[in-house]
Design a protein around this nucleic acid. Structure first.
Lengths: 130, 130
DNA sequence: TTGACATGTTAGGTTATGTAACATAAGATA
DNA sequence: TATCTTATGTTACATAACCTAACATGTCAA
């Protein structure tokens, strides 16, 4: 069993997770309802949480404490995933040389100050003044 | 004048920005009040917006439409900046070889699926079971 | 001097959470 | 096994905080 699989094993009932995260059961269920987590279930329909689930709940808790709402948390999770994917593609492709990665990063990151995004207003302006 | 400076020039009064973004004046002011934007002011205290301000407002609008609240938008902006900075440091340091960057990215991105973050629960668990 | 803009207040809809009521599952014990 | 207890499930209602709209009032500028 690899590390990834191990961290996804359903191990903890909700009572344990409440103590680990200091979140109420209501909160934990609410976050599941809104698809921020997706814990496994037992035959008897009890939630069983993995290490990854708990990690996610701790990140949710931290963001909540910063005043971020659930839609925002979802977006933050997506952004993390997106940044990872963007660079995974670069790094994973064995045919791309280190130098090419270096150049690509330089272009993407140093130029616009954003990850792969072009200016929004350009499109707006052309739509507007025609 | 470079491109960056040009995009920060105070050019548009709020009426223009309202049309460009299809946001109400109240909304635009509210976002300024909560420090998501920081438009320049004329001597007479009128707001004057740059291309960058408008870009930011369009991004705010898009996130608002996804249900993200202002704290979440602030976090998203920070995350963008953070990801950029993280990699800027890698790329900017001329003494770091391409190969080293490649290795570092592989470690950071392929392993944990996060940007430079280690598992949260490890610390939690050690605090808990002692 | 009239239209655009500034600030402040108020009211209403949405969201996140608490709480309570009641049903079911799991585990312990007679 | 039968039953008792506790943990957990779902659902409904209440509430506080957040965001927007609407309006009032004052100021700047063409």
């Amino acid at each position: 069993m690899n590390d990834d699989t191990r961290r996804n094993q359903p191990l903890f009932p909700i009572s344990i997770v409440m103590k680990l995260t200091e979140l109420s059961a209501r909160q934990i269920r609410y976050y599941e309802e809104h698809e921020l987590i997706n814990p496994a279930r037992t035959d008897g329909n009890r939630r069983m949480f993995s290490f990854n689930d708990v990690d996610k709940l701790l990140e949710i808790k931290s963001l909540i404490e910063q005043g971020v709402n659930l839609a925002g948390i979802k977006r933050v999770f997506e952004l993390n995933q997106q940044a990872v994917s963007l660079l995974k593609n670069e790094v994973k492709n064995e045919q791309v040389s280190d130098a090419a990665i270096h150049r690509r990063l330089k272009r993407d990151l140093l130029h616009a100050g954003r990850l792969g995004k072009t200016s929004l207003i350009q499109g707006e302006l052309s739509r507007f003044f025609h």
